[in-house]
Design a protein around this nucleic acid. Sequence first.
DNA 1: ATAGTTGCAAAAGTTTTGCATTGTA
DNA 2: TACAATGCAAAACTTTTGCAACTAT
Lengths: 138, 138
Amino acid sequence: MNLVRPYTGVLDRLKAAGLRPTRQRLALAKLLFEGEDRHVTAEQLHSEAHTANIKVSLATVYNTLHQFTEAELLREVVVEPGRSYFDTNISDHHHFFHEDESELTDIPATALSVANLPATPKGTEVKRVDVIIRLKSS
Amino acid sequence: MNLVRPYTGVLDRLKAAGLRPTRQRLALAKLLFEGEDRHVTAEQLHSEAHTANIKVSLATVYNTLHQFTEAELLREVVVEPGRSYFDTNISDHHHFFHEDESELTDIPATALSVANLPATPKGTEVKRVDVIIRLKSS
DNA sequence: ATAGTTGCAAAAGTTTTGCATTGTA
DNA sequence: TACAATGCAAAACTTTTGCAACTAT
């Protein structure tokens, strides 16, 4: 077992998710998944792609991010009005959100516990529990 | 003590917050604070105002909601990309978010506990802890 | 009167959609 | 070749800003 990351090529990952490895998709997947876990906005990823000489429109970046989210390769995190972050860490965990920097960092699920969850309303089930610890500089 | 709501006129509330009670502001405050606690979007409040024959632009609704939030008469809740909710309940509590209905409901702080909060990063302090339990129909 | 505040039209963002193009079987 | 999937321009949202008009002192 590889502690850094159970490595599978990005290509295999896309195939496993049932997504065609098109040029744009593969390029974006490489930017996202080859390296450390990260939290990116669509705009950030788009400009990275540009810098890396990958020709891709912002709309495609959005579509791709949503397809990856759908395929559970990414997780969408909503902490600010008018902007979504996409998290490459899809394991169970929570977030610090540093408001001054607009920056997210992970909190392992083991480092925090939510207890006494109230009963869910009739006819519903829990999809996910998000804990966001909002920080400000002190 | 009034169990329903420790009633102070909306006018006094605005004054106490240092906000001039202009016609629009007063009208929006009445819609927001005279009645049950609620979660509204800017668009919702704007259309309520229209229905109530209050002439106010959407931009002013946004400005007013943010001023109220700043003055701690409201709390902003971000759970969906591209839309903010404003909560008239400013006491410590958490939220269910029913994704299918795009609807928020309150969870009293006493009904749920977050334990073992990790140490906050150097130079930061906790501003708020948001717990969002995302629900789907089952 | 006038200094500060307010309210809104216009602008700026972010995100989604519709459809021509492309790629695959 | 046919058929579905893709990528992007254009459109649709939500939110913010700059400044003319207004208000309370």
